[in-house]
Design a protein around this nucleic acid. Structure first.
Length: 272
DNA sequence: AATGCATGCGCAG
DNA sequence: TGCGCCTGCATTA
């Protein structure tokens, strides 16, 4: 579920609870003390950096949320006649207002932090293509000095924040870059193209709440092929399309493990 | 019922 | 590099 676009979208969507102090609970229990402390406190702002979500409450207190691989957030409506359904017992955090509620389950992180602790999180993250303060040159400084593969660097949140396994695979495909090339062999022009493409793709991701990377001229309809069903919910070139024909050249999409994740690429379109 | 897998990450060694 | 952690869903038996 969660790459940076998801988290930025959540930051937007959680903002609906800034209208009046929400009721804060932790049905699952692991966040109960903090929840009790926060109930009645105004949610003043929400923010995302990479895959980290920050809910800012009055008094310089933040809830720091990281979804990890399994974390999920679900929003629901409520009215006086149809109140929010009782949370299931895996809900780590529920914010509830008269008009709706939001449930968080399965996060790797859900913790109360101070301004200083929040700043420490920002400090250890690289630039985020979805943030206005992002400096792509800072990321390139690390990429261009590294012997690590570009595929691994794109997933390193200290280098660039918010890219996950889908955007990683897709942006490399879109630029015809072999995932195993070393960072130091990525040219400034290539990095510039990758960065601006990520900005555009991830903004689309925030807007649509899903990852679509296939250019209009390459959709199955445009290419006269039968429509595809991608079970992750978006249109992509290579992600999880192992052994299927590449949409552009017809060669077989490949998969290999890289740093405990599956890497996907087309060996013909992304030659060494 | 059991197993495997997933858009993540931090830690030990 | 491998392991554990958080959960839900699809697949296998």
């Amino acid at each position: 579920m969660p790459e940076g676009h998801t988290i930025h979208r959540l930051a937007q969507d959680y903002a609906r609870f800034t209208a009046s102090p929400p009721q804060v609970t932790s049905p699952q229990g692991k966040f109960s003390d903090a929840a009790a402390l926060l109930t009645g406190t105004e949610l003043t702002r929400t923010e995302a950096h990479g895959k980290h979500l920050f809910l800012g409450f009055a008094g310089d207190t933040w809830i720091h949320i990281h979804l990890g691989l399994f974390g999920k957030v679900t929003f629901g409506e409520a009215t006086p006649d149809t109140p929010a359904p009782p949370p299931t017992d895996t809900v780590r955090l529920r914010l509830a207002a008269p008009t709706g509620y939001v449930d968080l389950r399965g996060p790797t992180t859900c913790a109360l932090i101070t301004d200083a602790e929040k700043q420490a999180v920002h400090d250890r993250l690289g630039p985020d293509p979805l943030r206005a303060d992002a400096d792509p040159d800072r990321a390139y400084g690390r990429v261009s000095r590294s012997r690590t593969t570009i595929a691994a660097l794109l997933m390193d949140q200290k280098v660039i924040a918010g890219v996950g396994n889908v955007y990683r695979a897709e942006v490399l495909f879109r630029h015809g870059i072999d995932p195993y090339r070393a960072g130091k062999d990525i040219t400034p022009a290539e990095w510039s193209a990758i960065w601006s493409d990520l900005v555009a793709l991830m903004r689309d991701g925030v807007r649509d709440n899903r990852i679509d990377t296939v250019r209009p001229e390459h959709t199955p309809e445009a290419m006269g092929r039968p429509p595809r069903v991608d079970d992750h919910g978006g249109e992509v070139y290579v992600y999880r399309r192992t052994h299927q024909p590449c949409l552009l050249c017809g060669d077989q999409v490949r998969t290999a493990p890289l740093a405990a994740r599956n890497l996907f690429w087309c060996p013909t379109c992304q030659k060494p």
